[in-house]
Amino acid sequence: MSGGQVAALVRAELRLETRTGDVLRGVAPYAVAALVVLALSVDADTRLLRQIGLGAGGAVLLLFGAQSAARRGLLDTDAVRTLCAVSGVAPGTVLLARVVTTAAMLFALTAVVVPVTVVLFDLTPVGGWWLAATTVLALVGLATLTALAATLVAATSVRAVVAPLLVVPLSVPLLLAVIQIPATVTYGSTPLSWLLLAALVDLVLVTSAVTLAPWLEGVR
């Protein structure tokens, strides 16, 4: 596996995303709109808004982040896949590039969703570094899962429907780990178990990705 090849594929994929805006221009506005609708539907009850805020933000991020699995990017084109195969790029390198690209897009989507959620739901940061670390692990896990799902259903014509359906149920433990951190800290416990849950899910997903890469990223 070559770091230079991963970097080149990620750079090209992100360059393409800045031109097409599939995720950030196509998905982010709808994620923000969903948050606005959710906040408006709870009346002016600030206490309730605070209670559901993190969960609502997490769910919106998960649902709209999973849409990136439906995106057809550089690595989904036959020309680039053939170029990779002929150039001797290892399947693991291609899958890693896909994971890194998806993670970058999810972090960008998070950067949009978090401030909107904080403002709309009147959230105050609770959990500090625990929350930040668990969120990062959850995003890495979600990116791996999204990349795996995107590759699994790449050849199907119903990709836009099937990929998010695969991602959402399997990412529930990651969402749960993030939204339980503030409550655990508020009640005076250490949220280590939630952090470890996110890390364990990541480990399972990364192991699956490494194992399945030769079958998933070969030339079809």
Binding site: L16, R19, A79
Partner: peptide
């Protein structure tokens, strides 16, 4: 036959 070039790059 396919130039293996991405149309948007």
């Amino acid at each position: 036959h396919d130039p293996a070039l991405h149309p948007q790059l």
